[in-house]
Simulated scan of single mutants.
Amino acid sequence: MVTRWDKISEQRMRKAEAEGHLKGLSGEGKPLPHRPEAALIDSGTAVGHRIMAEAGALPREIELKKQIAALHERLALETDPAARRALMAEVSTLQTRHAMEAEARRKFMGM
């Protein structure tokens, strides 16, 4: 069954390909490496995610997740109470935005 996400992924991959963003990437023409976490989603979606990531076209939801992880690392090293509060506020804001992006994706995909 083809989902809306499959169609969106395909459109974005075709656009990136047409714009030349997929040329000269490491591993071009080789099979994708085995990734156990990719087994949790269908293979078409996994391939779409991988191609988009290598082309630098990450979904906003993933970008926010990376930013949150980076802030958590900074927070773990911070000792100044005022700076920690500021970082915690920033983490909270990004977590809220991430939740909104995830909810929007779920609604769009009819989940």
Rank of each mutant, 00 (worst) to 15 (best):
G48V: 00
T45D: 06
A82V: 08
L87Q: 06
I51V: 14
H21E: 11
K65D: 09
R12G: 02
E54M: 09
H98C: 09
K30Q: 15
A89V: 10
K65I: 11
R35W: 09
R4H: 10
I8L: 11
P81N: 01
G110K: 00
D42H: 04
M88P: 00
A76N: 10
L25N: 08
P81K: 03
P36D: 03
H98G: 03
E63Y: 11
A86L: 07
G27V: 09
M109S: 05
G110M: 00
E101V: 08
K107E: 02
T45Y: 04
K23L: 15
V47L: 12
H34C: 14
P33V: 04
A38D: 07
A46Y: 02
R12A: 02
T45A: 10
S9P: 00
L40S: 09
R74C: 08
G110N: 00
S26I: 15
G44M: 01
H49W: 06
A102T: 15
M109Q: 06
A46L: 07
R14L: 13
G110H: 00
M52T: 03
G29R: 06
E61Q: 13
H34S: 15
E37R: 12
K15C: 12
A83Y: 07
L64P: 00
S43Y: 14
R50P: 01
G20W: 09
Q95M: 08
A46W: 00
T96K: 13
A89R: 15
K7H: 11
K7F: 06
R105K: 15
H21F: 14
L25E: 05
I51P: 00
A38P: 01
H49T: 12
A76R: 05
T96F: 15
E103C: 07
